[in-house]
Design a protein around this nucleic acid. Structure first.
Lengths: 205, 205
DNA sequence: GCGTGTGAAACAATTCACAGCG
DNA sequence: CGCTGTGAATTGTTTCACACGC
């Protein structure tokens, strides 16, 4: 697998292409040119061709790309053609929203366990799951083949819980807590921080 | 104001610096070097010095930066020292989580109105607000000095509602819907898409 | 002819390394 | 002496432009 030498900035664009192609395929769109796809995604056509060229030749000259074929190839590259199981930590309002976010299921991401340190919440239902105590994390993560963690907890606990998740075998973390995590190399971290997003917009207003 | 010629990638890092400095100031940390700040934020010390140099000279040689002074300067640059009023569109589970997200208030972002097109939801309380019908958008946005919109609605309505917000005078949109918005130049858009974030991590697993 | 795939060119961002100041 | 601020060097990314194949 060509996991190295492909710039991360390219990898972060592939999901956008995949999403657009999936919508197109659903609407019966058979063929697409890089220029057309570019217009939908909001990048340049040359960029799309360059990005794809890291992984192979998926188009036909003078014609374009077959939508469903390119979609399948991107799914394969991103490993979006298989199921992923997720441990959610934090059963607050955000955890509730995430459990009910149907878009995860649609893309093969399954929240397979929820943990919280609040004894009041442990044992109560959250969506289709029961909230579990933190002590059960190791066992459940291994048993349910969980490789991804989502942190939906206050910033002050995030670093410690992240380390705990890694300890239990999690290799990628989606962090909703407004704090920078420092974790061993090899552990992937993505950060969702609406305040930072808003602040970098207010600069321009 | 030097809104041009500063690369956007720099602007997107400033909120990280600001957050870290604010935490440090709260803990009584008086002075910080670029190397120390870099370690917390997870970037290089040279990068921090270069980024700051776009806006002025905030440090003392051989000594470092005064935490509270640098914090204040970043607040000013990002306009994080004033209040911002937000219109939330979508009163579902995500809208509920956002209304209850205390971190917005802490950084001077105030959700000042909630809209939904579901007649069942209109008139019901969401946090400290009542859900309003879409028809009241124009009036409320102008009345309450709202400049920012948050989209917490399904993808199929996002483009149309975004245009409506812009029509009403909103100049920045935080989009939680998994679709690319195309809006007039001058309108800022930030996109929060957990599925894309997850997919760009699963590539590496 | 049309649109892909791709080297080469242009542009952008980051790191280096050090003069200069407190 | 230590750390900032900053040109210069390096590294990374995007755009250009065109040969090639359908």
């Amino acid at each position: 697998m060509p996991k190295t030498n492909v710039p991360d900035v390219v990898i972060r664009r592939l999901p956008l292409y995949l999403r657009c192609l999936t919508y197109m395929a659903e609407r019966g769109h058979k063929v697409v040119s890089s220029a057309e796809l570019a217009k939908w995604v909001g990048v340049s056509s040359a960029q799309i061709r360059k990005d794809l060229s890291f992984f192979g030749e998926f188009g036909k000259q003078g014609w374009g790309y077959e939508v469903s074929y390119l979609r399948d190839q991107l799914q394969r590259i991103l490993q979006a053609d298989r199921d992923w199981f997720i441990a959610l930590v934090g059963a607050g309002a955000l955890g509730h929203a995430l459990i009910n976010y149907r878009t995860f299921e649609r893309w093969h991401f399954h929240i397979a366990a929820v943990f919280d340190n609040d004894p009041q919440k442990v044992g109560t239902p959250l969506g289709h799951l029961l909230v579990q105590p933190m002590e059960e994390m190791r066992h459940t993560i291994q048993e349910r083949n969980i490789q991804i963690g989502i942190l939906a907890i206050p910033a002050e606990h995030a670093q410690q819980v992240a380390e705990q998740l890694v300890e239990c075998g999690v290799r990628a973390i989606l962090n909703y807590a407004p704090i920078n995590l420092s974790l061993p190399p090899g552990i992937r971290v993505a950060h969702i921080d609406p305040v930072s997003s808003l602040q970098s917009m207010t600069f321009y207003l």
